Computed example of a mutant assay.
Amino acid sequence: MIKKKYTIKDIAQMAGVSKGTVDRVLHNRGKVSKDAFEKVDSILKNIDFKPNLHARNLKNNKIYSIAVLLPDPNIESFWNSANKGITAASNEFNPFGIQVKKYFYDPIDKFSFVEQSQKAIKSGPNVLIMVPTFLKESEEVLRICKNTNIFTILFNNQLNTLTDYVFIGQDLNQSGRVAANLMNRIIKENDTIAIVHINKEPHMEQKENGFKNYFKEHSGSKHVITTQTFKSNNELVFSKAVALFLKENPKTSAFYITNSKAYLFLNILQDLNKKDITIIGYDVLKENIKYLKEGKIDFLIHQKPYKQAYLCVANIAKHFLFGKNLPTLKFLPIDIITSENAHYHL
């Protein structure tokens, strides 16, 4: 049976009050006598009335402004998916008064991050969605937003800070543990492992901690684990640094790359003719998938940048428009990508 849709006029007639009184009860505004309120409230409960929130927002003509501070996808291809997720959510909710503006920064230039964050804050948004690539600078942005009542949502990188914010992404510590579990299954008993950070960001330490803790908890492990950080902005310097590390650590045969740049590391290993190695990395970039299918990357962990970014906009939009609760923490599943299922994720 199709449920009857009641109008404000219907409710007013049933309660024996004016339409204006019903409107004031529904929107909790203006004065209403106790007797009139009880009559309207009783009718609403009896008919299980659900207000049309789409129509309510359009009637109010309320505009909500969202600023997105995102690494420039033209500089680093990993962020193409996140950018598409932001665009998709923006297109979906724009007709209901959700306005989204993007501010792109260079992911290896903290001055670019500061400049774009200042522009985003100066625009006076209701919400700032941010990828906090640089720790101190991001904490300063959070402090300013708190003082100016700009609601903040972070994705991809989670920060350990006292400032309140919403985070949407993966459990980074658990992500490291998943990588360690995979590594432990496929390497030899005494293999030496290197945790490799390329262009280190705050979230990578959480992955490293999870990875190391997994092996600490498995007391039978005899693996030596080292950590090395590289910068890839200068190709020649990067290549020489990797070559020097391998020369000084010749027994290292397993590598955990903590971000999407496993393919950059492998490009150098190919030039050095380094073989018989195990590599676990992140993200379904075409360059990574190529090496995965060739058997040179063993596993990739999918961080779902599209979904992370989409949910940031969609969740805050639904909060504004429909009053839905906004969770302070939303972890997404940790997907393991192999050569056999990679094409489903491209």
Rank of each mutant, 00 (worst) to 15 (best):
Q99K: 14
F104G: 12
E139P: 04
R143G: 01
Y103D: 11
F134E: 10
N94Y: 11
V68D: 01
N80H: 03
I153W: 01
E115K: 15
W79M: 10
E92I: 13
N149M: 00
I121V: 14
I121E: 04
I153M: 10
N156R: 01
I75F: 08
Q118K: 15
G124M: 11
V127C: 10
N83V: 06
E139T: 09
L142N: 07
K84A: 14
K119G: 05
P125N: 03
S112Q: 09
S123V: 04
V127K: 01
P71K: 01
I144F: 06
I129N: 00
F93H: 14
S138C: 06
F93S: 13
N74P: 00
S123C: 02
N91R: 09
K84S: 15
E137S: 08
T148L: 03
F155W: 03
I150E: 06
E115D: 14
A120R: 12
N74M: 11
K136F: 08
L69F: 04
R143F: 05
L70I: 15
F151W: 00
I121G: 03
D109L: 05
G85D: 02
V127F: 14
L135P: 00
L69E: 01
I98P: 12
S81A: 13
I144V: 15
L142D: 05
K101D: 02
P132V: 08
F104W: 09
F78L: 11
I121L: 14
R143L: 07
S90N: 12
F78W: 12
G97T: 09
F155H: 15
S77E: 12
I86C: 06
N147T: 02
F78P: 01
K110R: 11
S81F: 08
S77L: 13
E140L: 13
P73C: 04
L128M: 05
T152M: 02
S112K: 06
K136A: 10
L154F: 02
D106M: 05
F155V: 00
A89F: 03
A88V: 06
S123P: 01
L70E: 05
P73M: 09
S90F: 12
K84E: 13
P73E: 10
V114R: 13
E137L: 02
D72F: 15
E92P: 05
I98R: 12
K122E: 09
T133S: 14
N74Q: 15
L69I: 07
Y103L: 07
F134N: 10
K146P: 00
A82D: 00
S81V: 00
N80Y: 05
T87M: 09
K110H: 06
V114K: 13
A67R: 02
Q118Y: 04
P73H: 08
D72L: 10
P132I: 06
F134Q: 07
N147V: 01
K102I: 01
E76Q: 12
F155P: 03
N80C: 00
K122V: 03
L142Y: 05
I144E: 07
Y105E: 03
G97M: 10
N91L: 12
K110I: 08
K110Q: 11
L128C: 03
L69G: 03
F134G: 08
E76W: 04
N91Q: 08
S138N: 14
L128G: 08
L135S: 02
N80R: 07
Y103C: 13
